[in-house]
């Protein structure tokens, strides 16, 4: 597999996970950007524990933990620590309104960035690099293929989990909070517990994406924490459709892929391209391309017509 294709596929898979991490709390109306901070925290943890190094003039002052944890352990560590952080914060903001959650998310993003930029052991503004390959002993191309498989395995796993969640009582409860919080409370839904669950899941998902991102780039720096990435994930969620989990599956490969094949003269305009797409979608289809009614229509189209014999006139529904 070529490096270009494997890079495209792995980053696509990781960005699907990232977009789902924003999608989950937004099921009950919270935009939780703390997942970006968690992504970076878990990536740094992975870098520290996998034996990555810092560079340049900081080498002499860096703390070398001399640990060489395998991928699976760093992955578990990243997910657990991120989930735990998300849970602790959710104790305070589990039932907070959307705006407050956004502010907390940004605060954590820039707190993480400031800590990373000023910590020599983390390589300050350069970050850490030379992260080991996911499996030592395999060639570069075999490693890339393996990483693609790992990333899509997690997309399937997380996707299945979100699918089950969406179809469950909890999923419907989250939807009711999104539509009318007071009504949800009157129905006996514990908004704080619901927020806590979704924020923790979002953070853990951010942690998972962070470690996968680390092993894809084999480097991490504070420069990942930018408004650009917030905007990118938001665009992917809102263009694809924020009411179902399928939106990101459609939007991420397209939005991440198209700028990669843009001619060089248009490269500098890629942010404008994202903006035009986002504005266009918000004007034409405010809920995004894939909506629940669309899924219902597709469902009817694919399944119910098969059940209904042509011309029978019998209503099977």
């Amino acid at each position: 597999m070529s490096a270009t294709l494997s890079n495209y596929l792995t980053i696509t898979a990781i960005f699907i996970l990232c977009t789902w991490a924003i999608y989950l709390p937004y099921r009950m109306g919270q935009l939780h950007f703390m997942m970006i901070a968690n992504m970076v925290i878990s990536a740094y943890l992975g870098a520290l524990f996998s034996g990555a190094v810092v560079s340049g003039s900081q080498v002499q002052e860096a703390i070398n933990l001399n640990l060489h944890w395998p991928f699976i352990l760093t992955l578990i560590l990243g997910v657990v620590v991120s989930g735990l952080l998300g849970y602790l914060i959710s104790l305070a903001i589990g039932d907070a309104p959307c705006f407050a959650v956004v502010i907390v998310g940004f605060a954590f993003m820039y707190l993480t960035k400031a800590i990373a930029e000023n910590t020599t052991a983390l390589g300050r503004t350069f970050g850490m690099f030379r992260v080991p390959r996911i499996v030592e002993g395999l060639s570069n191309s075999q490693n890339r293929l393996f990483l693609v498989c790992v990333c899509f395995f997690f997309v399937l796993l997380v996707g299945f989990w979100i699918y089950r969640f969406d179809k469950s009582k909890l999923g419907r409860a989250a939807s009711s909070v999104f539509v009318d919080r007071d009504l949800a409370v009157s129905l006996g839904i514990n908004v704080k517990k619901m927020g806590s669950l979704l924020q923790t899941a979002s953070s853990a998902l951010g942690g998972l994406a962070g470690v996968l991102y680390l092993y894809t780039l084999r480097a991490i720096s504070p420069s990942f924490i930018t408004f650009h990435n917030v905007g990118l994930f938001m665009t992917m969620l809102f263009v694809g459709g924020y009411t179902t989990q399928w939106g990101p599956l459609l939007a991420v490969p397209i939005l991440w892929g198209i700028p990669l094949i843009m001619p060089e003269s248009l490269q500098v305009w890629k942010n404008v391209f994202y903006a035009v797409i986002l504005i266009g979608i918000l004007m034409l289809k405010p809920e995004g391309v894939i909506t629940r009614p669309l899924l219902r229509r597709l469902n009817n189209l694919v399944f119910k017509r098969r059940l209904k014999p042509a011309g029978s006139g019998k209503n099977l529904s």
Binding site: A3, N7, Y213, T216, S223, F224, H228, L260, Q267
Partner: peptide
């Protein structure tokens, strides 16, 4: 000279570099 913009992003740098490897 084929100008390629990384936008100062490490991920962009890696993605663009990967296109040139072959």
């Amino acid at each position: 000279i084929v100008s390629i913009d990384t936008g100062m992003e490490p991920a962009g740098g890696i993605t663009e570099m990967s296109k040139l490897l072959d």
